[in-house]
Nucleic acid binder design. Structure first.
Length: 479
RNA sequence: UCCUCCUUAGCUCAGUUGGUUAGAGCAUCUGACUGUUAAUCAGAGGGUCCCCCGUUCAAGUCGGGGAGGGGGAGCCA
């Protein structure tokens, strides 16, 4: 009967000396032929199980190798040794699964993140990844709690889509047609009428357009699901498969949108600080250790927890694109020609070095950039009265860059159609979308938050492949 | 896709101006010890120096090509 066991986190917090317990988990280390450090994933803190000398066969003790799984019954006692207050004195010890010490890759020592990335199926058993994925879980839970409390409806937008007009990125094609000898049209192109859906289909790059349909009925919806981009991006902050949260709200303008996004990010941070203190402390220490390797000027000014507290307790800096260009152009950094790409004219997109300068050097806090030139933004963003800019907003976070991208949407049918024509987006493909502007259109807004980027920010990890269980990146689809 | 750095034992790394038998710590195995905290002590085993080609009397070390990985850029969330 497995369910009678107590989880180690529970035992260490609420265990009472003298209590009889059953615990199960994986051996982290076995010291002195007597002390088992046992972990079951509920916390990074191991339970010390004491196998009193002489009470167990050598044959059993030999099998207490790193990675082996065991079942222990015993009595909670106050620890004689330092390092823990409670421990369990074993009365029975059962090996559930052996782990060949010569073959098990994880040792009781520090491993590089690169090595563990190749052992992604086992890395959950390390302290770092234990903490990262418990925090990831907490953030996912907090996402739902936040929107649920506000009365948003969780809308499941499709994963397979025939919509290819959104233009958010390169798409993965979904087809059941054979690669060799696919049915052809007379002009030699592939005849998708023969395909599973009778048309060309892809994995979604965004649920936004479908999300807007929901917002036009429920007032406020959000999506939280996987998203796919076939971009050949090889960076520490891009994945081919990632999770995105996309709220979409009727009766919201750009300012409401910014307010919600800022409140949302702070809520997520607060939730983890309240509920995952131990994990954050471990991750903070890990980050501090890692940064010791870096030269002084590359280290963070604040520790992980101080950084999160700072973000929580300060307003995000809100400036327009035009103001940002002015700040950058007038900066000493620019005048001394320290930017690789000098800031000159109005109208071009900011380089990541410019974003980093604004966030990390100039304001030293998250920045919300608004009202970008319409030429560098998507067709659905609401056109401002100046005729040059759109009601877009990006939130830039220290160390991560763009964490949120959003906008007030263009609700005026004529303006939207005109913009689509300018950008060569065929209106017939999106007639369902345009219906929201034909029947009871309202001002509305929304944004997308990259979930893994949020996990990066909160955990202080620096590579996005280390905050998703099994990363999909160009040339890599293991597990 | 572009730029750049790296690849030596299971892991993390050292290896001198090219030179004879390639090292350390940890891990593993054997033994000792026993209230340990990544236990400690003694001993042992463990190498296609990423791959291919070239230069040389001689290549882990130099040159060319390839593969894998890290970091940065672009694209974006």
């Amino acid at each position: 009967m497995f369910n009678k066991r107590v989880k180690i986190k529970q035992l260490l917090t609420n265990g009472v000396a003298g209590e009889q317990v059953t615990v199960m988990g994986w051996v982290r280390t076995f010291r002195n032929n007597q002390f088992i450090a046992l972990n079951d994933g509920s916390t990074n803190n191991n339970l010390q199980v004491v196998a009193t000398l002489g009470e167990y066969d050598d044959a059993i003790l030999k099998r207490l190798t790193t990675g082996a799984s065991i079942k222990v019954t015993g009595v909670i006692v106050e620890s004689v040794g330092k390092g823990q207050t409670l421990e369990v004195k074993a009365t029975t010890l059962e090996i559930l699964g052996d782990s060949d010490a010569e073959k098990y890759p994880l040792q009781p020592k520090k491993h590089s993140l690169e090595f563990l990335r190749e052992k992604a199926h086992l890395r959950f058993r390390t302290n770092t990844f234990g903490s990262v994925f418990r925090v990831r879980h907490a953030l996912a839970f907090a996402v739902h709690q936040f929107f649920n409390q506000k009365g948003f409806v969780y809308l499941h937008t499709p994963i397979i889509t025939s919509s290819d007009a959104e233009g958010a990125g390169e798409m993965f094609r979904v087809t059941t047609l054979p690669l060799e000898g696919a049915p052809k049209n007379e002009d030699g192109s592939i005849n998708y009428k023969e395909d599973f859906f009778g048309k060309s289909t892809n994995l979604t790059v965004s649920g936004q357009l479908e999300g807007e349909l929901g917002a036009m009925a429920f007032s406020e919806i959000y999506t939280f699901g996987p998203t796919f981009r076939a971009e050949n991006s090889n960076t520490t902050r891009h994945l081919a498969e990632f999770w995105m949260i996309e709220p979409e709200m009727a009766f919201h303008d750009l300012e409401d949108n910014m307010n919600l996004a800022e409140e949302f990010i702070k809520y997520l941070i607060k939730y983890v600080m309240d509920n995952n203190k131990e994990d954050l402390e471990f991750l903070a220490q890990r980050l501090a250790e890692e940064e010791k390797q870096l030269p002084q000027d590359k280290r963070s000014e604040l520790g992980l927890i101080e950084k999160l507290e700072f973000v929580l307790n300060n307003d995000f800096q809100r400036i327009t694109y035009t103001e940002a260009i002015d700040i950058l152009r007038e900066s000493n950094h620019n005048k001394k020609k320290k930017f690789q790409y000098p800031v000159e004219g109005w109208g071009v997109d900011l380089q990541s070095e410019h974003e980093r300068y604004l966030v990390e050097k100039h304001f030293k806090k998250p920045v919300i950039l608004t009202n970008y030139p319409k030429e560098i933004k998507a067709f659905y963003m609401r056109q401002n009265d100046d005729g040059k800019t759109v009601a877009a907003m990006d939130i830039l976070a220290p160390g991560i860059g763009e964490i949120v991208g959003g906008s007030q949407r263009e609700e005026r049918l004529d303006k939207l159609e005109q913009r689509m024509k300018e950008m060569h987006i065929p209106a017939e493909d999106l007639s369902w979308y345009l219906d929201t502007r034909r029947f009871g259109a309202v001002p509305h807004a929304g944004f997308g938050l990259g979930f893994e980027r949020m996990v990066l920010f909160v955990t202080g990890m620096t590579n996005i492949r280390d905050v998703i269980a099994f990363a999909r990146t160009p040339n890599n689809c293991e597990f």
